[in-house]
């Protein structure tokens, strides 16, 4: 359905834009029909940038993204609406996603205007009510309200309903539950899983490992714009191979048992590396050497459905 091939995003920095900074570096993976992939990374890992590139909100420096075989960078302005009728996004802050001076329903009004200008009002209203029911909202409770009169969870469902009005095939869900309260976030997560079972593909961007585990079949671990490990969720979580992934897994606070080892890595200042393994300066492995500093390790398949980018698995 969606295929990312070596996509890269660089930003020019420095006084005259002489240096480039990699936000995303040669990231490749694909998402199949009806699949949920978790894109997991800490702040600054470039995970949101990838989502924005898929949504064509940020330009791609190099590499390509294909949607059902078509390179999305070749889509003309006139055909953009067609692309957006299949691919949509929901973002982290539901309140910021609504124009604060209008009522929340206006986001639906825009959809009507832009995508279904000829649909009569009655028919549209029916479609809308159906979409709201689908995300578990009672239209009477949520229509004709201002964003701040709704809860974060309600608003986030609202925004999912907005996407469902279209012939949706792919959804980019960027940290969509990190701002919600514990008692409501799981319901939004369940809703996504439910949509998935109806054939929707989802890129679930998160920093919260337990959420990623709950919902996705496959996970991609991102560190400083580079994929360090990816594969089936179970394998990544239970037998992490990359030292970064191992550190992440060891840092997850579990409800039922305490952290085993003490932190040695305090996450001090990390210099920007343009060459070699991105994790070099923090890597605790004894086997790390000059090769790690010089070459960027490629992703290699260590077992079926489990790839890792670390010099230690380069045989």
């Amino acid at each position: 359905m969606l295929k990312l091939s070596e996509i890269t995003k660089t930003y020019k920095v420095g006084t005259f834009g002489g240096k480039s900074l990699y936000a995303v570096r040669k990231v490749s993976f694909d998402i199949k029909d009806g699949e949920v992939i978790s894109l997991i990374g800490e702040s600054g890992s470039g995970k949101s940038t990838i989502g924005r590139m898929i949504l064509k909100l940020t330009s791609i420096t190099s590499g390509s993204i294909e949607f059902n075989g078509q390179d999305i960078s070749t889509i003309k302005k006139a055909d953009l609406k067609d692309y957006y009728s299949h691919v949509q996004g929901v973002f982290q802050d539901p309140f910021s996603s609504c124009n604060p001076i209008f009522k929340a329903d206006r986001i639906f009004e825009i959809m009507h205007e832009e995508f279904f200008p000829s649909m009569p009002r009655e028919e549209w209203d029916e479609k809308l009510v159906e979409a709201l029911h689908c995300v578990g909202l009672n239209p009477e409770h949520v229509q004709n309200k201002f964003p701040h009169q709704l809860s974060g969870g309600q608003l986030q469902r609202f925004l999912i309903a907005r996407a469902l009005l279209l012939d949706l095939k792919f959804l980019v869900a960027d940290e969509i539950i990190s701002m919600l309260d514990a008692s409501t976030r799981i319901d939004v997560l369940n809703l996504l899983a439910d949509l998935k079972s109806h054939g929707l593909s989802i890129l679930f961007i998160t920093h919260d490992l337990s959420l990623g585990y709950y919902i996705s079949e496959r996970a991609v671990i991102l560190y400083k714009g580079t994929v360090v490990e990816m594969g089936e969720t179970d394998k990544i979580y239970h037998t992490p191979l990359h030292p970064y992934t191992q550190m992440l897994m060891a840092s997850v606070p579990h409800l039922d048992h305490k952290w085993e080892q003490k932190t040695t890595d305090l996450g001090g200042k990390v210099e920007d590396i343009t060459e070699g393994c991105v994790y070099f300066s923090r890597c605790p492995l004894e086997g790390k050497g000059e090769q790690c500093r010089a070459d960027i390790p490629p992703l290699v398949e260590v077992e079926p459905g489990h790839q890792v980018a670390c010099c230690c698995f380069q045989k």
Partner: peptide, 19 residues
């Protein structure tokens, strides 16, 4: 509240949590 928390080890396909 406790039962609504997702944990590593719980999957939607195996156990559905409720808010």
């Amino acid at each position: 509240l406790i039962s609504s928390l997702p944990k590593v080890g719980i999957k939607y396909s195996e156990e559905i949590l409720h808010g």
